[in-house]
Design a protein around this nucleic acid. Structure first.
Lengths: 148, 148
DNA sequence: CACTTTAGTTAGCAAGGCTAATGAGTTAAG
DNA sequence: CTTAACTCATTAGCCTTGCTAACTAAAGTG
């Protein structure tokens, strides 16, 4: 029974290991998130993106989250129903719709931010400093891997 | 607009970044997988697990994949319908069911393995050696993060 | 032997992806 | 200037894949 470390020595082994780890960790994070009040996992990501990058069109949000436009329309509609984002007409292009965080959205984001990351942050604190450093190096690479 | 590297300096920033990256990469990997023939993303993970760890009960598979037993029952039933795994009675405990890879399952796994990891492995090859080394260090930590 | 616990299953529900088709707005060609 | 082609967002509807609740059968336990 080969260990994770051994499997990772080859590129295809590393690929296989990352694929499985990412899938499991994703499911786990979703589960932890379910305990939170308010918005869903995907919707929270959109709020965070709006906070980081400012106003975005539906298309931009969809591209950033690696999702098709209809999926993003649905997510944004949910957020709008909850009063967390607002739709505005695009200043020069009547086809596009600009989405912005409402004040209520900002508040929810600020209030829930610590709680949303609580589980993972706690798990991270249980790691050794070296392990955290390893993840710190890996995070931006993982970030880039999902873009072609 | 803070960079990923800056955000990651704090534990909660690292948690937030990992949460988002993992979600996006997971969606991306699912999409790449959809082009493959045969079995679904989750089912492929079960086949790989059976190959790595040998025969397992439904409960063991569910625990390993961080999924509830009914979900694993369904996944295993699909695989059984395709003739890729087989159910056997547990030797000493009549309640449990032991799942094993069939010869057909082994063949599919061997034939598809390279293809399944092709996209991610290609992306990994585009990274610098240092970046690959960083992921190699992070992989076992990510693996452990999904377990409490 | 009755009672509780455990493993797996069945049934039904919800979240969240997707494609296809539509409508409105923009751009380009003639 | 008008018409054709394209783009963005939307609507409608499907599929996958998680979940909980309720059930059955088997195994422990008093």
């Amino acid at each position: 029974m080969p260990s994770v470390e051994q499997v990772c020595r080859t590129d295809s082994g590393l690929a296989a290991s990352l694929r499985v780890s990412v899938a499991r960790l994703h499911r786990r994070l979703r589960m932890e998130h379910a305990d939170d009040v308010g918005v869903s996992f995907g919707a929270a990501a959109v709020l965070a993106l709006l906070r980081r990058e400012g106003d975005q069109t539906i298309g931009q949000l969809a591209a950033a989250e690696r999702v098709r436009p209809p999926s993003m329309t649905r997510t944004v509609s949910c957020l709008e129903d909850d009063g967390l984002v607002a739709r505005h007409p695009h200043p020069t292009d009547g086809r596009q719709v600009v989405i912005s965080l409402t004040e209520q959205g900002e508040e929810l984001l600020a209030a829930e931010r610590r709680r949303r990351d609580a589980w993972l942050a706690r798990r991270l604190r249980e790691l050794t400093p070296d392990e955290r450093a390893a993840l710190r190096q890996a995070a931006p690479i993982l970030e880039r891997l999902s873009f072609s």
